[in-house]
Simulated scan of single mutants.
Amino acid sequence: MTKITALPTEIVRALQEGGPDAHGQMPERTVSDGGGNPCRHCLQYIPEGQEMLILAHRPFPEAQPYAETGPIFLCANHCARHEGEAVPEVLEGSPEYLIKGYSADHRIVYGTGIVIPQAEMMGRAEAIFADVRVDYIHIRSSRNNCYQARIDRG
């Protein structure tokens, strides 16, 4: 059993309240055009006209060679964290995703990375978790490599 895990609320609230991003910069504030700006906390698209943040995020506990940093969007206002087993709205919008497994020490487990159709993603995640070296899986954009969410054992 697997579950999709959104960014932790404490990290998101710090950013929404003006805290610095992974590069030590203030998140950019802008307005969503409604054209596919996925919030990494509620895992919903930020509606047109709503304020949003654009910032650099590193979904790892510390900087190290495998700790990729890249751009993400967040709702500018507080939103509820995605919970539950249902595939969230933002992961239904693309035909395919890049997924890859990471070890408990946050290193890529080589051989687990694959660009896969969205409909096959969660089944493949179950297979990746069969490798005991895998602690969690990242879901990333297959086109831009942007971090989307994490898959954890349920």
Rank of each mutant, 00 (worst) to 15 (best):
T2Q: 10
K3H: 12
T5W: 09
T5Y: 10
A6G: 04
I11S: 05
I11T: 13
R13N: 09
A14H: 05
L15T: 08
L15Q: 06
G19E: 05
G19A: 04
H23W: 12
G24A: 11
M26L: 15
V31D: 07
S32W: 08
D33T: 14
G34Y: 07
G34S: 09
G36R: 09
N37F: 10
N37P: 00
C39V: 01
C39L: 01
H41A: 01
H41R: 02
L43Y: 03
L43C: 13
Q44E: 15
I46L: 07
E48A: 15
L53S: 04
L55Q: 10
A56I: 02
H57E: 12
R58L: 07
R58F: 05
P61R: 04
P61D: 06
P61M: 06
P65Y: 06
Y66E: 13
A67V: 02
A67W: 01
E68Y: 11
E68R: 13
G70D: 13
G70M: 03
P71W: 09
I72L: 07
L74Q: 02
C75R: 01
A76R: 02
N77L: 12
H78Q: 10
R81D: 01
H82N: 09
H82K: 11
V87M: 11
E89T: 12
E89K: 07
V90N: 10
L91E: 09
E92F: 03
G93M: 07
S94G: 00
P95R: 12
E96V: 02
G101F: 05
G101C: 07
D105E: 12
V109A: 03
Y110S: 11
G111S: 09
G111K: 10
T112F: 08
T112P: 11
G113V: 03
G113M: 12
V115D: 03
V115I: 14
A119Q: 15
E120H: 12
G123P: 04
R124M: 14
R124H: 15
A125C: 14
E126Q: 14
D131V: 06
V132L: 08
H138V: 09
I139D: 06
I139N: 05
R140H: 10
R140E: 13
N144M: 08
A149E: 07
A149T: 07
G154F: 14
